[in-house]
Amino acid sequence: MSEQVTGDAGRGDQIPGRLTEVGSGWHPLLMRLHSQLLGLAVDYRVEEFASRLGGLRLYLQDRFDSHGEFDGDWADTAGALVEVAEREAERTCEECAAPGRPRFHGDRHRTWIRTVCDRCHARPWPGGSGAPTCVRTSDRQVPERRPRPGGPRPRSVRRRPAE
């Protein structure tokens, strides 16, 4: 098996090259994770890195030894470190690093979930409509309900079996 390298070289294959994808409050915990991962393997690579549903999602590229064998020990150790960082992010404000929790904001068309503290939650989110500027929003529009041609659909009646 050959080792595959994924990720955009312009964005960086390690955590420091991708810090702009999350709020600055998570930067200290991510840099701590980066130094821990460097202690395991200086050439580790990030496959996916994102803020989703108020939490951090981080997936690392698998490692293989010189004989093409999967390095399960590295995967277990690195996975445990990533899991700790993801859980810590769910309790840390993404903006200021204070203790926080996931908060919902939005309307019937779109909703954002971000982990923020009480102080940052009380501040209006930039963007005018209350949408955070650093969180992706869906461009999908909810289709308008139109009446069915020929009138409403008849309701089915459930009959009891004859005894």
Rank of each mutant, 00 (worst) to 15 (best):
R145M: 11
T115A: 02
V22R: 08
P126A: 05
W125V: 11
G23Q: 11
L29W: 05
E144I: 13
A131N: 03
V46A: 01
L81W: 00
H34W: 08
P154V: 13
L53V: 03
L19S: 12
Q14G: 08
R155A: 13
Q36E: 15
R148D: 01
E144K: 04
E21P: 04
E48N: 09
H105V: 15
P147A: 10
C96N: 06
P132V: 05
P132L: 11
E144L: 12
R11Y: 09
R45K: 11
L33S: 00
P99I: 14
T137L: 14
A85Q: 00
C117E: 10
F70R: 07
A89R: 01
R32H: 02
R11M: 13
L19Y: 07
S51Y: 05
R140D: 05
D13R: 07
R146N: 03
G79L: 14
R119K: 00
T92Y: 02
G23N: 11
A89E: 10
T133P: 09
R52I: 15
C96E: 12
E95P: 02
L29N: 09
R114S: 14
W125Y: 08
C134Q: 01
R114L: 15
S129L: 06
R52C: 13
G100W: 10
V42E: 12
G54K: 06
G127I: 02
D62L: 11
V46Y: 02
S129M: 00
R148S: 01
H109G: 12
R153N: 04
G68V: 00
E83P: 00
G68T: 01
D73Y: 03
